[in-house]
Design a protein around this nucleic acid. Structure first.
Length: 490
RNA sequence: GGUCCCAUCGUCUAGCGGUCUAGGAUACUGGCCUCUCACGCCAGAGACACGGGUUCGAGUCCCGUUGGGACUACCA
């Protein structure tokens, strides 16, 4: 029997790796309408890493065409957060409001070439028509009323883009692959508002063209804008940059991250005692991966980052993993380097100032048990305060009359101690408690802990003693003795 | 409603047709270590949304269903 199967020659899809000869230039373009949030920070990070990986440059641009919502305060907040995270930029920050002439020039080009036209429709009118269209089940897009009315400039007129009615626009997304849009779905977007201010979609295109941006890496909430922007590049006769749309970060309810999901501000994490590298490491792993590796130095990230290993699906923000990373970086940090970072937290707790080297030694004993700098500062109280206060329950439970004798002997032995380092201290306890008194170390450990720290939770006793030093230790032991003796009398 | 995107343990993810009775991390549970709390170590439980194809073979390719998300402004 005849086989009628048509043997169409399959297109050998040549997996062409496009080597970019031109320099890589990326940008981060936040709008200054609030602090830098987690999502924005990750977008910035991907842009920064991509630029650094390709030895290109990274530009910061402030998109402040929304004059009502933009504030200088927000600009500062964003810049501060970028600096804190260690993302430096090679040019900028540029401000769109200082570039209006540029937008105007490009707008005139579009007007002259017939790619743009004046529109006289009032917002109210537009709104009514949109609603009517929806009610009738039609698309709520601009109906093109003024498209061919040949208006000239006028005080209340906007300028619209003359969007082609037919054809398909392809976004060749670096992350998501090709995405096809029927131009018929797009409408004649406003390029310049009636107050003369350019709209976002127009300003970005002009900016990205004039700044020679080679790779536009942004949140995938922009994919639907991209075909319009591509059409604008075409109308302007400009070459296209590459686009890469990074999936969103979602809250636990799988809706786009927002304030109601808790701490979303980058700087809030600094205040909560997080290290910048924790946030960087967490953010980069949200959507990007390199095999099974979880921990990356900045240098490794620059080496290994690529858009090909950015995932396509949205990810849910998980603060617990960030906390784990922070605990990790606190553990790994050099205690001396932690001191200056810890300082503001120490101060806000009202501790008296201490020698940085002393603080560093205290820090060393707490690195394993602190997940944040706030936590660390809080558990440092017995190192920092000259006078400790007993936790009531702890004192009652452990500072009992039966401890008077062991404490007295310990005080005597400690007074004579020439070395006050951990091994020496351990030997003293071994001799006095275990050998002479025939007691278990565990019997006196908690009482001594309460005497020295006021509570039942602390780093190892010998570590604590070595850091506090002979004088303070003896002082606190004697104070505990006095307390026990007084309790015995009552 | 329309357009577009997405779909592996609760969560972040590895996987790029056979080596997957699906790996790692986090969180959780149990044990060990131990002067408390942690850290650390060991173990355990836990996922390919569903249905059709294609193929000798599918978590991996195609289509559909379902579910989620984004966009739909003279905001960005």
């Amino acid at each position: 029997m005849l086989c009628h199967r048509v043997l169409s020659l399959p297109f050998m899809s040549i997996n062409r790796r496009i080597w970019i000869m031109e320099p890589v230039i990326t940008r981060f373009a936040p709008s200054p309408t609030g602090y830098l949030h987690i999502g924005g920070a990750r977008t910035a990070l991907f842009n920064w890493l991509f630029a650094r990986h390709h030895s290109g440059s990274f530009i910061l641009r402030i998109e402040d065409t929304d004059q009502v919502r933009s504030t200088d305060q927000s600009v500062k907040a964003i810049l501060d957060a970028m600096e804190w995270l260690g993302m430096d930029w090679d040019a900028g920050p540029y401000y769109q409001k200082e570039r209006f002439d540029l937008y105007e020039d490009h707008l005139q080009k579009l007007l002259n070439s017939g790619h743009a036209y004046y529109c006289d429709c009032s917002p109210e009118d537009l709104d009514a028509r949109r609603k009517a269209a929806m009610a009738e089940g039609r698309k709520p897009k601009y109906d093109g009323r003024c498209r061919d009315r040949g208006f000239g400039p006028g005080s209340h007129r906007v300028v619209r883009f003359r969007c082609p009615h037919g054809g398909t626009t392809v976004v060749n997304d670096l992350i998501k692959g090709p995405i096809f849009f029927d131009n018929a779905e797009l409408d004649d977007l406003v390029l310049r508002r009636s107050d003369g201010i350019p709209t976002y979609n127009f300003a970005v295109v002009v900016d990205d063209i004039t700044m020679n941006i080679s790779h536009v890496i942004r949140g995938d909430d922009h994919v639907n804008n991209t075909p319009r922007q591509i059409l604008l590049y075409r109308a302007l006769g400009e070459p296209l940059p590459s686009f890469g749309h990074v999936p969103m970060i979602l809250g636990p309810d799988r809706a786009r991250m927002s304030k109601r999901h808790g701490a979303t501000s980058v700087m809030a994490y600094r205040e909560m005692g997080y290290l910048p590298q924790s946030l960087i490491n967490y953010l980069v792993r949200l959507g990007w991966s390199h095999g099974d590796q979880e921990i990356f130095t900045l240098q490794e990230l620059v080496e290994k980052f690529s858009l090909e290993s950015v995932g396509k699906s949205a990810s849910v923000y998980n603060p617990e993993k960030l906390l784990w990373l922070n605990a990790h970086y606190i553990k790994e940090s050099d205690p001396e380097q932690l001191v200056p970072l810890l300082k503001p937290f120490l101060e806000s707790l009202g501790y008296p100032p201490k020698d940085p080297h002393y603080i560093a030694r205290a820090v060393r004993t707490l690195q394993q048990r602190s997940k944040t700098l706030v936590e660390m500062a809080e558990s440092m109280n017995f190192y920092m305060l000259d006078e400790i206060t007993y936790d009531e329950g702890a004192a009652k439970k452990f500072l009992k009359p039966g401890m008077v004798d062991p404490f007295q002997r310990l005080v005597e032995a400690l007074e004579k101690a020439e070395n006050f380092d951990e091994p020496a201290l351990e030997k003293i306890f071994e001799r006095v408690i275990v050998a002479e008194l025939n007691m278990k170390f565990g019997k006196v450990a908690q009482p001594v802990r309460v005497a020295l720290t006021g509570g039942t939770v602390s780093p190892g006793l010998f570590e604590v003693m070595a850091v506090l030093g002979k004088n303070i230790v003896l002082k606190r032991m004697r104070k505990a003795l006095a307390y026990m003796q007084q309790e015995g009398e009552n």
